[in-house]
Design a protein around this nucleic acid. Sequence first.
RNA 1: GGCCCCAUCGUCUAGUGGUCUAGGACGGUUGGUUUUCAUCCAACAAAUCUUGGGUUCGAAUCCCAAUGGGGUCACCA
Length: 435
Amino acid sequence: MIRTRFAPSPTGSMHIGNLRTAFYAYALAKHNNGEFILRIEDTDKKREIEGGANDIKDLLTIFDIKWDEYYIQSERLDLYKKAAEKLVEDGHAFYCQCEAKNAKEDGFSKDLRDPCRDKNLTSGAVKLKVPENEWITFKDFVLQKKVSWNTSTIGDATLFKTDGFPTYHLAVVVDDNDLKISHVLRGHDWMPSTPIHILVYKYLGFDVPEIGHLTDIMDPDGGKLSKRKGSTSVRGLLTEGYLPEALLNFVILLGWAPKDNREMFTLEEFVKYFDPNGFQKGNPVFNREKLDWFNGEYIRKLSDTELYEKFQFSNSNFQTMEENKKLQITKLVKDRIKKISDLDALAKFFWEEPKEIDMNLFGKNYKEHLTKAQEAIEKSIPLDTVSKNNDFKVGDFFMDLRIAITGTKFTPPINESIEILGKEKSIKRIRKILE
RNA sequence: GGCCCCAUCGUCUAGUGGUCUAGGACGGUUGGUUUUCAUCCAACAAAUCUUGGGUUCGAAUCCCAAUGGGGUCACCA
């Protein structure tokens, strides 16, 4: 039985990379009729944020990811404490009373061995007694190769803190064993701590599960995807107007690809298609253009009413429109937007009169065009016949009208727009230009 | 700096020793449809498969090195 887990810590809003890990872990389990477990790793009380765990559950639900079991590490403290004590008893760990060190100014520490390791203290933080010159090897199921370390290059990691909480290193190992996790899927940034975990597994007498390290998603400017370059939080992307199905489709293809290079996947299809051989080894770049394309595709897959509801939910100006006009507007913009939030830029003229129209936008015959157009609208004569009867250049005529009504050159079809806007408002806008 | 990982069009990738004068998608360019924009359709450009050595009759595919990129070195995860 394949059992995977998603083990986020509630220390901030969920990152797009974390979400991807959840999708992969979910697919790996579900493709094999296995179980997917959600475990909240709240062992750092200083960094924990209010409502963090609920936010994670909420977000997963938005993406239709369902978990079979749910655990919170802070409710399992006993387990970790016993494990830490056992390690000390067996001589594989030791108590340490050194002052906690923070990250060094130069970014790295050269002291691998802790001065307390042979003092036989009976209280304090618990640290792993890393042996000298032993080789640790495991086969990474994402990389599909063996990776080795010599223990002489690994530091005495802290396993249990003086605040009564375990560190990540102890908690993951104890929990993954206790919850019978068969496959551990995590970010590449965890690679260096894998030998520590393997040592703990060994000293605790546990079997080591399959472990795989995913690629890191990169920022277009280089380096790991960062928060300051646009929004990388899932919540942020959602409110920016990206659809969950588009986000999912885009992100699963960053670091994984099927043999036939198929591009469109629903969650269900992804689960069915999933194959761990498709995991990528090189880090992918987060590419907005492609996300935008996916989002446009998924917006067009929505029914008019579904899209209407998205607008209704996210745009307060849209909400104030007359009920029957909302659906008409939705139809007009559907082919023209990439994000739900694009509605405002494209349809603003419906709820807001354009101000300070740049007169240079108009063609040289605009007065004649607008005069005739105004008459026609008043008498409800089709605008196409106006341009025909007066021998206007069709494009020029409609462009002048478009600018007068909307204030810009790029808009939804103008006939339908005028219909939605209404006679009165349309004429008023034309008059304003003519004055 | 130590340790570890990675390397095919600008980007996401297909490719697992011959079918590769390297395929698809996004983006780009051009053209068609259209009263604008967008959608839709078509075509084109774009990768000496990072470089240098091997192995082999034959290498994008295997090996080594260099270079480049990334990660990590907290009583954070």
